[in-house]
């Protein structure tokens, strides 16, 4: 049995190491954002807020933050609405072309972003709507709708199958049952889906970079700074982006968890 115990500890140590690898870049990015050295290493330089000040005083960053916010909130709204409608269709109806239907919805995340970026760029140019904030929103909605669909579909599968029929039985037509029963039941998943799709959109850079034109988002600014040279401003912006994304993710998680606890 001692063998087994050694193996166990070895595995735990290994797991810890893997987590260190995964979180090291996030951790160092935050640390470096407060570090005075232009090229940080150990030992660390002095504590400073100058990178944050630089970013704070940069009107481009503010403009990009506004664009990013618009894009991610609009994307989250569209993707969640599309995802909800699709999840409900999958939940309620069966039809002959359903595998194709679901494929159409769920496929986008399997296409490399760079290909999507090129395809969107060319297609929007063809339709004459390239280089607008709207182009980013459309592209991001295509990309994130599958996530919304998955989250809401999961919630629907937890629903008592007679709940909707019970509403009809009590005199609700399909629309009222949707508004009064299905939507309230899915509310936690809808909120989660909204936060998560917003977070994904807020971080996406490849498509934004290709289709944004002059309307840069925060990740596009990061990409441009990184391409230029080493500039710890990136860490400051990155930490800010991380904070926003994490807040959204944690809200999403908490909403889902508390609801589940309450129902059990």
């Amino acid at each position: 049995m001692t063998d087994n115990r050694t193996l166990r500890w070895f595995l735990f140590a290994y797991l810890a190491l893997v987590f260190v690898f995964i979180f090291a870049p996030i951790f160092f990015s935050v640390v470096f954002s407060f570090n005075s050295d232009r090229f940080p290493t150990i030992p660390l330089g002095n504590f400073t807020l100058k990178w944050y000040q630089t970013v704070w005083n940069d009107p481009d960053v503010w403009e990009a933050a506004r664009t990013s916010l618009t894009v991610s909130l609009s994307t989250a709204t569209i993707a969640t609405a599309l995802g909800f409608a699709t999840a409900y269709t999958d939940y309620r109806y069966s039809f002959r072309l359903k595998p194709i239907y679901l494929g159409l919805v769920l496929l986008p995340p399997t296409i490399p972003l760079i290909i999507m970026a090129l395809a969107m760029l060319a297609w929007f140019a063809k339709l004459g709507i390239s280089g607008q904030v709207m182009s980013i929103i459309i592209a991001h909605s295509v990309l994130t709708a599958p996530f919304a669909m998955a989250i809401i579909r999961l919630r629907l599968s937890q629903m008592d199958p007679s709940l909707e029929a019970a509403a009809w039985n009590l005199g609700a037509n399909e629309w009222s049952a949707m508004r009064r029963v299905i939507v309230p039941f899915c509310r936690p998943a809808i909120i989660s889906s909204f936060c998560l799709t917003a977070a994904v959109s807020f971080d996406e850079f490849a498509i934004s970079w290709f289709v944004s034109g002059l309307n840069k988002t925060i990740p596009v600014i990061i990409l441009e700074i990184v391409t230029g040279n080493i500039d710890p401003q990136v860490n400051a912006i990155g930490s800010f982006v991380f904070l926003v994304s994490m807040t959204l993710v944690i809200i999403a998680q908490v909403v889902l968890m508390t609801r589940r606890k309450k129902e059990n």
């Binding site: 019970a166 039985n169 039941f185």
Partner: peptide, 12 residues
């Protein structure tokens, strides 16, 4: 009106 086997009360 139907009283369901699962009751189907609205949990929210």
């Amino acid at each position: 009106p139907l009283v369901w086997q699962s009751l189907a009360l609205f949990p929210f």
